[in-house]
């Protein structure tokens, strides 16, 4: 069964799904993307024939829980699954109007020009041994050369680095440029990471759990910074997150992943009202909110599903989804 069938079963698509940006080719088109891991006990399918398209400037949330395959999907799109025991297949993978052709001989991944990515924890993502300024300038220099403008001048690169720190709201520019990641606070690191990810002018930003390492207030700040900046440059964003509420709040569309498949694609603003897949419905109900304080008992996947189906027995969906494969290889 292909992912498309699953989506069709999940309910009628909203218009936004079938054609995100009218009359415009999508920035990213994926068909039947499958990722398999070879393990000692046989092959495990982490991503199972997933198909979707992302419009120019569109923001999509890819939500799911551990083991759903969402992080693996992100890594596959960015071309990071170069391990010997990982097999990535797809019938179509178009980015910015051209099919992505990846060198499968090199273990060290190559960059996909125009595709940038940020990761969960800025502390572990930023290069620990170089100052922020150096990391920022390295990207600005490379981007300048790629534009065909030759090697940009030192002063120009420096000026651009300051400008980017300023854009993400880091005021103490000179100190941040000289600081190494561990010398900054968590919120500052996150902003620095966003600056570095965006200063090369990507067309698509994949954000893998961009807020899970942050406190709630910082998480919102980081999301807002990221989305404002990508909005200004019409960069498409794929936010991979386990936080279904936060993710859908900041995006145009929400994809829900379960067991390696995309089981639901909805307009984010109407996700709560239109979700039909039992897993999505249960997930939305399970998220603790401030209103939960009034409850005697929190809803669980099992209890919600029993309520929906009227059967007081766990069905296939309600069993605790055990991680089918390692989330990030």
């Amino acid at each position: 069964m292909t992912a498309r069938n699953v989506i069709d079963e999940a309910g009628p698509r909203t218009t936004a799904v079938s054609d995100p940006v009218e009359g415009d080719a999508p920035i990213l088109a994926v068909e039947d993307l499958t990722v398999r891991y070879g393990t000692r006990s046989g092959e495990v399918t982490a991503v199972d024939a997933v198909s979707f398209a992302l419009g120019h400037g569109e923001r999509v949330a890819l939500v799911g829980e551990s083991g759903s395959g969402k992080s693996t999907l992100g890594l596959a799109l960015a071309g990071f699954l170069t391990q010997d025991n990982v097999h990535v297949e797809c019938s179509r993978l178009d980015f910015a109007g051209a099919a992505l052709d990846r060198d499968t001989r090199s273990r060290l991944p190559r960059r996909t020009p125009g595709l940038s990515m940020i990761f969960q924890d800025a502390m572990t993502t930023l290069d620990p041994v170089w100052p922020i300024g150096s990391q920022l300038r390295a990207v600005i220099r490379a981007a300048g050369r790629a534009d065909g403008g030759g090697r940009p001048s030192r002063a120009d690169v420096r000026e651009r680095a300051r400008y980017w720190l300023d854009r993400v709201g880091l005021r103490d520019t000179e100190r941040v440029l000289r600081a190494r990641p561990y010398e900054l606070s968590g919120g500052m690191r996150q902003r620095a990471m966003i600056a570095i990810a965006l200063c090369g002018g990507p067309k698509l930003l994949i954000a893998d759990e961009p807020t899970s390492a942050l406190d709630a207030s910082l998480a919102r700040e980081a999301m807002e910074t990221m989305l404002t900046l990508t909005g200004q440059s019409s960069t498409s964003v794929l936010v991979i997150s386990h936080d279904i509420l936060l993710a859908q709040e900041y995006t145009d569309r929400t994809f829900v992943m379960y067991g390696g498949r995309i089981v639901e694609q909805r307009t984010s603003a109407r996700l709560v009202d239109t979700a039909t897949h039992p897993y999505t419905v249960a997930l939305l109900r399970c998220v603790p909110t401030l209103a939960s304080a009034e409850l005697d008992e929190l809803p669980t996947l099992a209890s919600v599903n029993a309520e929906i189906t009227g059967v007081d027995e766990p069905t296939e969906v309600t069993g605790t989804p055990e991680p089918a494969a390692k989330e990030s290889a």
Partner: peptide, 27 residues
Amino acid sequence: AVDAAPTRFRIASGASPAMVRLSLVRR
């Protein structure tokens, strides 16, 4: 180091391949 987050971030953000190698080896 090849699969470490800093390497992936260097590549994805768009640093030059030489810089990626340098960063990888230094770590």
